[in-house]
């Protein structure tokens, strides 16, 4: 076989390979773009007359999605970055009246991060690398608040239905942030939208159990959207009313 024939042959093989690979590359790019595509706040349809009679009951269900009083939660937390990196830590959250304490430690028990939020003032008492970044502390507390505390404003401003027919409680914060809460017997879903009405966080709580007559999820998954996307998968180790 001459060099020319070999080159033509290789070119044909290459073209064939490109033909089969290009659609895959295109699909991957499309998938990557759609992952970065922001999710906008969905419209709510008003509750009809029949729903109105149930609205009070539904709003109460939304309130019951958050524990009341003083609690101590311990979770295993698998942290996964968009680039595939991540780690598993143990998280401690203590809700104590107006204060919120949280700590992260290695599976072996070494405390990596400890902070307290009281009257919107954050005090970090321990932060070891790589958790010593102030931005990390603020982000962590924001996530903990979103998971365990009722959204800012406490009372939902509206209840309505999504296009799919799901009932939703909608909370409006003073800073323009909007939180949608969907609750059913299997758990709950929280979607948080920034002032631009793009979804910044979603929290899926599943496998609820009853502890001290309150509903506590055994599993939680928080997904943060955007360029620095990450996922926290939390599994309940213990929940105690204190």
């Amino acid at each position: 076989m001459s060099i020319m024939q070999r080159l033509v042959g290789e070119k044909t093989i290459l073209r064939g390979a490109l033909k089969s690979v290009l659609p895959c590359v295109f699909l991957l790019l499309l998938a990557a773009c759609s992952a970065l595509q922001p999710v906008h706040l969905p419209d709510l349809t008003d509750l009809d007359a029949v729903d109105d009679s149930q609205a009070g009951q539904f709003l109460q269900r939304c309130r019951n999605n958050f524990v009341t009083g003083n609690w101590q939660f311990v979770h295993s937390i698998a942290f996964k970055m968009a680039d595939g990196g991540g780690a598993t830590v143990i998280g401690v959250t203590v809700l104590d009246g107006q204060k919120l304490h949280c700590a992260l430690m290695t599976v072996e028990g070494l405390v990596l991060f400890e902070a307290e939020l009281a009257q919107e003032k954050l005090a970090v008492s321990r932060a070891l690398p790589p958790f010593d970044n102030p931005e990390f502390a603020r982000g962590l507390i924001r996530d903990v608040q979103a998971i365990f505390l009722p959204p800012a404003g406490e009372e939902p401003k509206a209840a309505g239905r999504l296009v799919g027919g799901e009932l939703v409680c909608r909370y409006h914060a003073d800073n323009g942030q909007i939180t949608d809460l969907l609750v059913d017997e299997k758990g709950s879903r929280i979607n948080i939208y920034d002032p631009d009405l793009n979804r910044s966080r979603s929290i899926v709580a599943g496998s609820p159990i009853t502890v001290a007559a309150e509903r506590v999820p055994e599993t939680l998954e928080l997904t943060a959207s955007g360029l620095s996307a990450y996922t926290l998968t939390m599994t309940l180790i213990s929940a105690d009313k204190i």
């Binding site: 101590q72 311990v74 401690v92 304490h101 028990g109 400890e114």
Partner: peptide
């Protein structure tokens, strides 16, 4: 058996 004690913990974490 490992006991983890922290000021914020009402009872220790046992591993």
């Amino acid at each position: 058996t490992q006991e983890k004690h922290l000021p914020i913990l009402a009872r220790p974490i046992i591993s």
